[in-house]
Simulated scan of single mutants.
Amino acid sequence: MSETIRIANDDLVVTVATLGAETQSLDTSDGRSWLWSGDPAFWAGRAPILFPIVGKAANDMIEIDGVRMPMKQHGFARRARFSVAEKTDSLCRMELGPSDETRAAYPFDFLLSITHAVEGRSLKVTARVENHDKVAMPFGFGFHPAFCWPMPGMTKGSVHHVALENRAEPPLVRLRDGLIDLTPLPSPFSEGLLALDHDYFIDDAMIFPEGAGDQLTLSAENGPSLAFTFENLPNLALWTKPGAPYICIEPWHGMAEAHGKGSDILNRPSTKILPPGEAVEFSFTVAVEG
Score class of each variant (00 low, 15 high):
residue 94 M to C: 11
residue 273 I to K: 07
residue 213 G to T: 00
residue 2 S to C: 06
residue 160 H to W: 09
residue 188 P to G: 11
residue 263 S to E: 10
residue 225 S to G: 11
residue 69 M to I: 14
residue 206 M to H: 13
residue 158 S to G: 13
residue 185 L to E: 15
residue 93 R to V: 15
residue 267 N to E: 14
residue 17 A to Q: 06
residue 232 N to V: 02
residue 88 T to S: 13
residue 77 A to D: 02
residue 111 L to K: 14
residue 101 E to K: 07
residue 236 L to G: 03
residue 275 P to N: 04
residue 222 N to H: 13
residue 21 A to Y: 00
residue 77 A to C: 05
residue 18 T to V: 07
residue 218 L to Q: 00
residue 106 Y to D: 08
residue 87 K to D: 06
residue 274 L to P: 12
residue 94 M to D: 03
residue 28 T to M: 02
residue 26 L to C: 08
residue 201 F to I: 11
residue 79 R to T: 13
residue 147 F to S: 02
residue 236 L to Y: 06
residue 253 H to R: 10
residue 33 S to K: 11
residue 256 A to T: 05
residue 133 D to Y: 03
residue 225 S to Y: 03
residue 187 S to A: 14
residue 117 A to P: 01
residue 280 V to Y: 05
residue 167 R to F: 09
residue 184 P to M: 07
residue 20 G to N: 02
residue 173 V to A: 05
residue 118 V to E: 07
residue 288 V to F: 01
residue 124 K to D: 08
residue 209 P to K: 02
residue 32 R to A: 15
residue 72 K to H: 14
residue 151 M to Y: 00
residue 108 F to K: 04
residue 125 V to R: 08
residue 266 L to I: 14
residue 156 K to Q: 15
residue 103 R to H: 11
residue 200 Y to N: 15
residue 88 T to L: 11
residue 60 D to Q: 14
residue 233 L to N: 04
residue 163 A to E: 15
residue 93 R to F: 12
residue 11 D to W: 08
residue 288 V to D: 00
residue 286 V to S: 04
residue 232 N to L: 00
residue 213 G to E: 02
residue 176 R to E: 11
residue 107 P to E: 05
residue 76 F to I: 03
residue 14 V to W: 04
residue 263 S to D: 13
residue 207 I to C: 07
residue 73 Q to A: 12
residue 223 G to V: 10
residue 270 S to P: 05
residue 3 E to M: 14
residue 52 P to V: 01
residue 180 I to M: 10
residue 68 R to H: 13
residue 8 A to F: 09
residue 219 S to C: 12
residue 285 T to V: 05
residue 148 C to H: 04
residue 178 G to F: 00
residue 34 W to F: 04
residue 236 L to R: 01
residue 280 V to C: 13
residue 140 G to Y: 01
residue 251 P to R: 00
residue 245 P to L: 06
residue 182 L to K: 11
residue 264 D to A: 15
residue 290 G to T: 07
residue 20 G to V: 01
residue 45 G to Q: 05
residue 19 L to S: 15
residue 227 A to P: 12
residue 239 W to E: 06
residue 130 E to K: 13
residue 64 I to Y: 00
residue 153 G to H: 02
residue 44 A to C: 10
residue 200 Y to H: 15
residue 124 K to E: 12
residue 83 S to T: 15
residue 42 F to G: 11
residue 88 T to H: 08
residue 50 L to Y: 01
residue 160 H to I: 11
residue 204 D to R: 06
residue 168 A to G: 09
residue 279 A to N: 11
residue 216 L to G: 03
residue 124 K to M: 11
residue 196 L to R: 09
residue 15 T to E: 12
residue 114 I to Y: 04
residue 267 N to H: 14
residue 32 R to M: 12
residue 282 F to E: 05
residue 288 V to H: 00
residue 62 I to C: 02
residue 116 H to P: 10
residue 38 G to A: 04
residue 168 A to R: 06
residue 142 G to W: 00
residue 272 K to N: 12
residue 135 V to E: 14
residue 92 C to I: 11
residue 34 W to C: 08
residue 179 L to Y: 02
residue 23 T to H: 05
residue 173 V to Y: 04
residue 240 T to P: 14
residue 185 L to V: 11
residue 16 V to D: 12
residue 245 P to R: 01
residue 123 L to T: 09
residue 252 W to R: 09
residue 131 N to G: 08
residue 117 A to I: 07
residue 162 V to A: 08
residue 62 I to F: 00
residue 62 I to H: 01
residue 112 L to F: 08
residue 11 D to Y: 11
residue 103 R to D: 05
residue 198 H to P: 13
residue 4 T to E: 14
residue 89 D to K: 15
residue 20 G to K: 02
residue 52 P to C: 04
